[in-house]
């Protein structure tokens, strides 16, 4: 067995610990060791974004981050979006605007949109299209995803 080490970080607000080989990618630690199967694997080359998670306030593709890089980090995944039993505005909007079909890209897409709206709370359609360009969807043609992000942005603004 190759050498392993312990890594500790916060996952959706809770401290967690994992023992990993240095080569282990974050997506595998999340999915196989920490039972967070929301983020998916679509390419393992950073192109599709199905594995997108939020790492210290940045959207990252967890298929190209080593778990050992996450020591002390704060991570948010799709599983951390629902707060106190209430869906995040983006989750609700994806449902209401039919912004998903097979659901495979959805966790990464919502997690990316979550950061996008933190960076730019009032994005134009073009801002949204550019902002989610790192997340591929094969089903929806993006039109309803864009509508969902716009709708969530409005609801979040109204709640502020």
């Amino acid at each position: 067995m190759a050498k392993t080490q312990k890594v500790s970080f916060k996952l959706n607000g809770k401290p967690v610990e994992a023992t990993v080989e240095a080569r282990e990618l974050l997506i595998y630690t999340l999915r196989e060791k920490l039972a967070h199967t929301g983020p998916h694997i679509g390419c393992e080359t950073s192109h599709c974004g199905a594995c997108t998670v939020d790492l210290d306030g940045m959207s990252v593709k967890s298929c190209t981050v080593l778990t050992v890089q996450c020591e002390g980090a704060e991570l948010t995944t799709i599983e951390g979006m629902e707060q106190g039993g209430a869906l995040h505005a983006l989750q609700q909007a994806f449902h209401e605007e039919h912004g998903l079909q097979c659901g495979y890209c959805t966790p990464g897409m919502i997690t990316r949109a979550y950061r996008l709206l933190k960076e730019n709370p009032n994005p134009s359609e073009q801002d949204i299209r550019k902002g989610i360009a790192g997340n591929l969807c094969r089903c929806t043609g993006y039109q309803n995803i864009v509508k969902a992000v716009q709708s969530a942005a409005k609801k979040l603004a109204a709640a502020r």
């Binding site: 929301g38 998903l100 659901g103």
Partner: peptide
């Protein structure tokens, strides 16, 4: 009608083959 299947997908609770352990 809004889709019945969305509830699990928007929460990251879909059950795809790769998720099975």
């Amino acid at each position: 009608l809004l889709r019945k299947e969305d509830a699990r997908f928007i929460r990251g609770q879909g059950s795809y083959v790769a998720d099975i352990k």
